[in-house]
Computed example of a mutant assay.
Amino acid sequence: MPPRSPSPSPASPSSASPAAAPDPAAAEREALTVLLRAAGCVFAEDEAELILATARTPQEVADMARRRAAGLPLEHVVGWAGFHGLRVVVEPGVFVPRRRTEFLVDQALAAVPHASVVVDLCCGSGAVGAALAAALGPVELHAADIDEAAVRCARRNVAEYGGHAYAGDLFAALPDRLRGRVDLLAANVPYVPSDEVPLLPSEARDHEPLTALDGGGDGLDVLRRVVAEAPRWLAPGGCLLVETSERQAPAAVEAFTRGGLEVRLAYDEELHAHVVVGTRAAGRVR
């Protein structure tokens, strides 16, 4: 919301120095910051700026502040998230793309810089697919998720790139014509072990779908399912990229190896991000 001009103040006697005019915009920003800080928002000042920049009316500011103070993720409150230089639409109830997942995008672009067929599996908002398409230029882009709300949101984000989004369980959602043609298969699978889901921050636990978080007993159930079927969908030289945790990385690498993929593990210290990259060798498919 653009800053409002200060209200005119009464004329002061000529013998007195004029007092500085009050700044309603600054007062509003400060009041919002105080409210958010009291609600436990660590970055209250930055969040106040985002809300004020996004809201179109004072009523929207009040509504957004109330929802954020009640614990909704900031991205659900303002309706978007910054991801790999894009403003990605994030609707209520949809998994919020994490900054560390930008590393997965960077690794995908480095692995197959001339990809023409891209699939974003377990797509959530479709942020990864949109970011890949934005960087690669014209591509055939497909996204899929088991959550209907995520698919509706992803359709909005991939539409700009001519992409398609489908609802369904992993590869079952994809058109069969993609088999053996996928250059980049990005799968940001859920990888939180089931018994650790209750330990997640309430923003994730209470406001994001369980299907986007719970990866089963050791957190790798969905990853193993993806790796088992991926070689049938990858083009020769095509890559599968999956995010995981430091603790799970060795088991994830082992799953990729068993799946017949040439595997390497990439790590970004600043983001504390781990990405397993598997390549289908030319002429090799199980």
Rank of each mutant, 00 (worst) to 15 (best):
L121I: 06
V119E: 02
P198Y: 13
P92D: 03
Y161D: 00
A186K: 11
P113H: 05
V88T: 08
A108M: 12
E91I: 03
S125D: 05
A134Q: 08
H164K: 14
D63E: 15
A187N: 07
A144W: 03
R100V: 00
A165M: 06
A144G: 02
A165G: 04
W80Y: 13
P138H: 07
A115H: 11
A187P: 06
A134H: 11
D183N: 10
S202K: 15
V119P: 06
G85A: 11
A149G: 05
D176G: 13
P175A: 08
A143D: 00
I146K: 08
V182W: 10
R87Y: 01
G93C: 10
L199K: 15
V118A: 03
L199G: 09
V96K: 07
G85W: 10
Y166P: 06
A143P: 01
R100D: 13
A154H: 06
A110T: 06
L72C: 02
P92L: 11
G129H: 11
A149E: 10
A70F: 04
A65H: 03
D106I: 04
A69C: 12
L74G: 03
V192N: 09
G126N: 02
V96M: 04
G137F: 06
P113Y: 11
Y166T: 01
Y191H: 14
A172N: 10
P138N: 02
G71A: 05
L170T: 07
V197T: 11
P97I: 07
E203S: 15
V158E: 02
D147T: 04
L200Q: 13
E75T: 12
L74F: 08
V105P: 05
G71M: 07
G180V: 01
D176M: 13
L72Y: 09
V192R: 11
D195L: 14
E160Q: 13
N188G: 12
